[in-house]
Computed example of a mutant assay.
Amino acid sequence: VDITSDDLDNQLSEWQHYYNWERPHSAHKGKTPMEKYFDIANETPFSDEVMSNYDIKNERVQDANYKLDLEIARLKLCL
Rank of each mutant, 00 (worst) to 15 (best):
I40F: 14
S13M: 06
K57D: 14
E59T: 14
D55V: 11
G30C: 01
W15M: 11
H25G: 02
F38A: 06
S47Q: 12
V50I: 15
E14A: 09
Y37T: 04
R74T: 13
L75D: 02
E35H: 10
R74F: 08
F38L: 13
F46Q: 15
I40W: 08
E35C: 02
H17S: 08
E59D: 13
N10Y: 11
T44H: 11
C78D: 13
S13A: 09
D6M: 03
K67C: 02
G30D: 01
R60D: 07
L79V: 06
Y37I: 03
R60I: 14
D69P: 05
M34L: 09
N53H: 15
M34C: 06
R60T: 11
D7Y: 05
E71T: 02
Y66F: 13
E35L: 09
D69Q: 08
Q16F: 05
E43R: 11
H25R: 12
D39T: 14
I56D: 05
M34E: 04
Y19F: 13
Y37F: 14
K76H: 09
N65Y: 01
D55T: 10
T4V: 00
W15R: 07
L79D: 07
L12Y: 03
L77N: 15
D2L: 10
D48Y: 15
H28T: 07
L8Q: 10
Y19S: 08
E43S: 13
L12S: 00
Y19H: 09
Y66H: 07
I3F: 02
E59F: 10
E59Y: 12
N65F: 01
L70R: 08
F38Q: 10
E35M: 12
S5I: 03
L77G: 12
W15T: 07
L12D: 03
R23F: 03
H28A: 14
Q11N: 03
K76I: 04
P45D: 05
I56V: 11
R60L: 09
E43T: 10
T44E: 11
W21I: 01
T44R: 15
V1T: 03
L68H: 04
A73Y: 02
E22V: 07
A27M: 05
A41K: 10
E14V: 07
K29Y: 06
R23G: 01
M51T: 14
T4S: 08
A73I: 10
D9K: 13
E22R: 01
Q11H: 06
S26W: 04
I3H: 06
T32G: 11
Y18C: 05
Y66V: 11
P24D: 03
Y19M: 11
R60N: 09
K31C: 13
Y18M: 07
H25S: 08
G30K: 01
D39P: 01
A73D: 09
Y19P: 01
N58W: 03
D63C: 15
Y66M: 03
D39I: 10
K76S: 10
A27I: 08
T4W: 00
Q16D: 09
R23V: 02
D63P: 05
P24Y: 07
S47F: 15
V1C: 01
L79P: 00
D6G: 01
L68R: 09
P33F: 00
V50Q: 15
L8D: 07
K67E: 07
S26E: 10
N10I: 15
Y18D: 01
N42C: 04
H25L: 12
T44A: 12
D63Y: 09
V1Q: 01
D63F: 10
T44F: 13
E22K: 09
E71R: 02
A73H: 07
P33C: 05
H28C: 13
L12C: 08
